[in-house]
Computed example of a mutant assay.
Amino acid sequence: MMILTDKKPRVNVEGILTHEEIHEIQHHLSHYPYPRAASLDALKCVQRRNGWVDDAQLHAIAQLLTISAADLEGVATFYNRIYRQPVGRHVILLCDSIACFLMGAETLAEAFQRELGIQYGQTTADGRFTLLPICCLGNCDKGPTLMIDGDTHGLVEISSIPQLLEAYA
């Protein structure tokens, strides 16, 4: 992993980002008065290609935005849906808010961990699933709630875990 500093090393942006990504980031830049404001859009754009943002990509994005890599890293690590390390093809986000906790989220998390054979923050050996906690999915009246690849599932019961996972085969 590269050490991020406020110094801006010059990188070959074209060798790291695709032409489509560069064009999309420049498009986002045109909508904001300050380059830093396009940070999240730029990170999401690059993450769409391979599921996460590596150090070289982060430096290239920072260079396009004319901000420091350290500043962009701060944005990337603040948002829990920007991944700075590889994740599985499907990311399972289990809500651990107080509402879901009271509705059995902890028991549900333990069942997912048993079923997948991994702990929070890990990816299954086949690269299919990554399991992560999330502080709230805004589906409090249907807890416990989880999200897989942007699909929200509420009132999830332990008995439905195998069928739910199979739907993302």
Score class of each variant (00 low, 15 high):
77 T>D: 13
83 Y>K: 11
168 Y>T: 12
69 A>M: 08
163 Q>L: 09
145 T>Q: 13
50 N>W: 01
55 D>E: 06
156 V>F: 03
100 C>M: 11
159 S>V: 12
68 S>W: 05
5 T>Q: 11
110 E>A: 14
104 G>A: 06
85 Q>Y: 03
110 E>Q: 15
78 F>H: 11
114 R>M: 07
99 A>S: 15
58 L>M: 15
76 A>M: 06
129 F>R: 07
70 A>Y: 09
52 W>G: 08
127 G>Q: 03
112 F>P: 00
59 H>T: 10
1 M>P: 07
25 I>Q: 02
69 A>G: 14
7 K>W: 08
94 L>Y: 03
86 P>L: 05
36 R>K: 13
2 M>D: 12
169 A>V: 11
52 W>Y: 15
2 M>T: 12
67 I>V: 15
64 L>D: 02
166 E>H: 14
44 K>H: 13
94 L>M: 08
153 H>A: 07
19 H>P: 12
29 L>R: 01
135 C>N: 14
80 N>C: 01
21 E>C: 06
130 T>P: 00
29 L>V: 04
143 G>R: 09
53 V>S: 01
132 L>I: 01
153 H>N: 07
70 A>S: 15
24 E>F: 09
120 Y>A: 14
59 H>K: 11
52 W>M: 07
66 T>L: 09
63 Q>I: 00
35 P>R: 02
115 E>A: 15
104 G>D: 02
116 L>K: 08
26 Q>N: 15
142 K>M: 14
117 G>K: 05
161 I>E: 06
51 G>A: 09
78 F>S: 10
101 F>I: 11
89 R>A: 11
103 M>C: 10
74 G>Q: 12
44 K>Y: 15
147 M>R: 03
112 F>G: 01
28 H>E: 12
122 Q>A: 10
59 H>A: 11
97 S>A: 12
139 N>A: 13
150 G>M: 09
68 S>L: 09
169 A>P: 14
64 L>G: 01
23 H>W: 07
